[in-house]
Simulated scan of single mutants.
Amino acid sequence: MTTHWSEYWKLGHVTSFGTDYKENYTGQLKDLWSDIFSQFSTGFKVLDVATGNGALPLLIQDYFSKLSIDGEVKGVDYADINMAPLTSSHHNKNVVIELLGNTPAESLPFPDCEFDTVISQFGIEYSDLIISMPEVLRVLKDGGIFHAVIHHQKSVVICYNSKLLSFLQHPEIERVVFLLKMMAHDMGEMTDRQDLIRIKSCAKCEKSRIEINDLLSKLAVYDEESLSESGVLKYINDFFINGLFWSVEKKLEYLVFVSEQISVYRQRLTELVAASMSVERIDSLREVLRQNAVITFSVEEVVNNTGDILGWYFSFSKHSF
């Protein structure tokens, strides 16, 4: 799991939704976390599990930017972390942030009873909850609270990405990339307009071009919105516009990159959809907590202003007996 998520965070995204939340979480999600942050008192110690590039720690810094409250937030993620969003922030430095990559939720490198609060946003559900939940309880202080927003099987996020995943599994996409590789060879080295005239009379190139257009028309019939959102059209445009006069070697290297990016995207979406929680999985989570002596467990749906489901919110407190 780590490799493709490491590549994703390397691009500088703050959240796991790419351009959907370019800066950080907003709306109902931000309001929900603001209500939680309002419960923190000075000297707080918070752990963010599956932090990504630190979206929640940055929200905490922003929330306390005009308040005289000090605190510490540590974030861990199984993937590598890109520190750029953190180092470029100009938020309240009274809230100290430390992020640790290559750190699974199933094995938290902290002493027992270290944190007042443990939080997670669209992250901990990717872990093995049978192992990670006892770890959360271990590092929580007595009376400490766990808050999480996790993926809901029927949320707009999962429905949208399930549709996109289904689109990316169409074999026509791989065929388009294969035909582009054939065209790179058939076009040969190109340096000027004379080469443009030459390839227009290339029967092999024309045959590949026609098939590519037919495949794209077929993909548009399947799902025109996903065709646009998937990045497939952008890759093709880059090949024919920006890369037209690249060397054959560079064209082929670019197409290897394209294949890798599509594969990585497919992997991330597969994991995202698989991590989403149905009502039955929520019941299983409740049972895991009961087995670890958690009696009080709160769960509710998070919805936006139009009634669309955004995720599950659940929380519990740690009590020693």
Rank of each mutant, 00 (worst) to 15 (best):
I199P: 11
K207E: 15
P171R: 08
E72P: 00
S217Y: 06
S259R: 05
L269Q: 07
A203V: 14
D195A: 02
M187I: 08
T2I: 09
G307H: 04
S208L: 00
Q28R: 12
M190F: 06
F314S: 03
A203N: 13
G188Q: 07
K74C: 09
E253A: 10
E172F: 05
L227G: 09
L310M: 13
I241M: 09
G54Y: 02
N161E: 13
Y78P: 00
L58Y: 01
V49M: 02
K204I: 14
F245E: 03
A148P: 04
L99K: 03
N94Q: 14
E125W: 03
K45Y: 00
V14N: 02
K218T: 14
Y78H: 10
F167E: 06
A184F: 04
K154S: 14
K234M: 08
V177D: 09
V95R: 06
F64S: 04
S208W: 00
A274G: 02
F314M: 11
T103W: 00
E301H: 04
L179N: 12
G311D: 03
E106H: 01
Y254G: 11
S107P: 00
I212L: 07
I119T: 12
S155N: 04
S162T: 14
I150P: 00
L11A: 13
L285E: 02
K154E: 15
N24W: 02
T117F: 13
P171F: 01
V299A: 12
Q28A: 15
C205T: 14
S68D: 15
H170W: 07
Y313M: 02
S276I: 01
M183R: 12
W33Q: 10
L215F: 01
H151S: 07
N304K: 02
Y254S: 10
D20Q: 13
H319A: 11
S226V: 10
L56Y: 01
N92G: 12
